[in-house]
Amino acid sequence: MKTQLMAAGFVLLSFMLPLKASAFTGLYVVGDSLSDTGNVFNLTINPNTGIGLPPPPYFQGRFTNGPAWIDELAQKLNLDSPTPFIQVLNGATPQGGVNFAVGGATSTTANTIDSNLLGLPQQVGAFQTVLNTNQQPVDADALYVLWLGANDYLPTESLDFVPFTDSVQTLENISNAVQALASFGVQNLVVPNLPNLGNTPRGLSQGESISNSLNQLTQEHNAGLSTILAGFSQNLGLNILPLDVNSLFSNPQSLGFTNFTEPCFNAIAQTLCSNPEQYLYWDFVHPSATAHGILADAAFTALQPQSVPESGSAWGLLAIGALGTAGVLKRQQKKFAISKEN
Rank of each mutant, 00 (worst) to 15 (best):
N239R: 05
N342D: 12
F63D: 06
N90P: 03
L12W: 07
G96I: 01
L89H: 06
S22C: 04
G96T: 10
F59H: 15
S33M: 00
S288N: 08
G9W: 03
A299D: 07
A269K: 11
T64H: 02
P263S: 09
M16S: 13
N246L: 05
L236M: 03
V245G: 02
P84H: 12
K334H: 08
I240Y: 01
S307Q: 14
L120W: 04
L317G: 06
L43C: 08
F284E: 12
Q304Y: 12
L43E: 15
G198N: 10
A322P: 05
D297Y: 13
Q304G: 11
Y279C: 06
A142Y: 02
F300Q: 09
N193Y: 05
L79N: 06
L131R: 14
Q123L: 01
V190C: 02
K76D: 06
P84L: 00
I210D: 14
P242F: 01
G321I: 12
S247K: 15
A230D: 10
N65S: 07
A105M: 02
F15K: 03
T133G: 01
F184A: 08
G321D: 08
N111P: 10
Q216P: 00
K76I: 04
S175G: 15
Q278M: 08
G185D: 04
F249I: 15
V102M: 05
I210P: 02
N193M: 05
L255D: 05
P67R: 10
E277V: 12
G97E: 00
L117D: 07
N48I: 10
S311M: 00
A182Q: 10
L27C: 03
N48E: 15
I210E: 13
H292V: 10
N111S: 03
Q135C: 01
A267L: 10
Q123F: 06
Q123N: 11
T129S: 04
T227M: 03
A68R: 00
T106E: 00
G231V: 13
G66C: 11
A68W: 01
N239Q: 11
N222Y: 07
N246A: 14
P57K: 08
Y58M: 02
V138H: 02
E157N: 13
V11M: 11
V285S: 10
F232D: 00
K340L: 14
Q206N: 14
K330E: 15
P263C: 08
Q253E: 13
K334T: 15
S22G: 01
F232Q: 04
F63E: 11
P195T: 15
I294R: 10
N78W: 06
V328Q: 12
V130W: 12
C264I: 07
G66A: 12
A230S: 14
K76W: 01
G203A: 13
L236H: 04
P56L: 00
G66Y: 11
P242R: 06
V191M: 05
F161Q: 09
H221Q: 12
A92H: 05
Q179N: 08
T133N: 14
K2F: 08
V29R: 00
G31Y: 07
H286V: 09
Q135E: 12
T261D: 13
G149Y: 07
N65H: 06
